[in-house]
């Protein structure tokens, strides 16, 4: 009896020791869910995926807004005015987008730094086996898109590049967005950069959209191929949508 109790206490101690080891492994790293999400490799993947998804939603929304240019000055100028009339929503969305984009970029940068560190001695010869072009260029396409976004904001939102735009108003006294677009895209260089950026966005999305599902654990072999094709199709549609505007301007379909 005494022996049994004693054995139990030994086993108990062993369990306790093991428990402590596990606790140490985890609590040392402070297993707060938020810290882990921002710090851990998989947490970062989730943040990349979720922020990427939100940015994708913005890309869609922005595209739908822009396409109103085809409905004439009245529609798009009215749309712009309507957005301005809701400053809370507008600024909320802007700040939200800023935070989302910042997170996306921060995670990307931190993942990239870690990834560089993971292979200090590069291969003398490395042959990609099947990785798509879009997957291999996801970082560089991201960086160029960022550069474009900054230019784009300076151009159309903050009107730094063309301060004159601020004075352009239509007959109803609204900012003449239509005129700005036509004027902006009439410049071949601007249109060219825009088209290039949209092409890269398409490339970025065709990997990113599929990737998003994998990162949150929603990709499986049954619909993997479908997902890939869906991602490519959506990316291509987005490109066509955005590209249609400068093409229309340059070919004088919109004046």
């Amino acid at each position: 009896m005494v022996g049994a109790l004693w054995i139990a206490s030994v086993c108990g101690k062993e369990r306790q020791r093991e428990r402590q080891r596990f606790d140490k492994a985890l609590t040392l790293r402070n297993m707060s869910i938020w810290v882990e999400l921002l710090r851990s490799s998989i947490g970062k993947k989730y943040i990349m995926a979720i922020t990427g998804f939100l940015l994708f939603i913005f890309v869609i929304g922005h595209l739908l807004g822009n396409l109103q240019v085809f409905l004439g000055p009245e529609a798009i100028n009215g749309y712009a005015e309507k957005l301005r009339s809701m400053p809370l929503l507008l600024w909320g969305a802007r700040i939200g987008l800023l935070v989302v984009a910042a997170l996306h970029i921060w995670m990307a940068a931190s993942l990239t730094i870690e990834n560089r560190r993971a292979r200090p001695e590069p291969y003398q010869l490395k042959t990609p086996i099947q990785a798509t072009y879009s997957a291999r260029t996801i970082r560089i396409s991201g960086v160029i898109i960022l550069a474009f976004v900054i230019y784009h904001l300076l151009h159309f939102t903050f009107l730094v590049i063309e301060p004159d735009y601020a004075t352009w108003t239509d007959s109803a006294g609204r900012p003449h967005v239509y005129k700005m677009m036509v004027a902006g895209f009439s410049n071949v260089w601007i249109s060219g950069f825009y088209l290039l950026a949209m092409l890269l966005l398409c490339l970025h999305l065709s990997h990113g959209l599929m990737s998003m599902f994998q990162s949150v654990g929603l990709r499986n072999p049954v619909w993997a191929r479908f997902l890939e094709q869906l991602a490519r199709t959506i990316a291509a549609l987005i490109f066509l949508g955005y590209a249609s505007i400068p093409v229309a301007v340059l070919s004088n379909l919109i004046e």
Binding site: L26, M31, S41, A118, Q130, A135, I138, M210, S211
Partner: peptide, 23 residues
């Protein structure tokens, strides 16, 4: 949790879903 923690501590890189590993 423990396996991922150990993997990270070892200094492996992060996944960018290129699926080169699978290939």
């Amino acid at each position: 949790l423990k396996m991922v923690a150990s993997m990270e501590e070892a200094g492996f890189g992060n996944c960018t879903n290129t699926f080169e590993c699978v290939a």
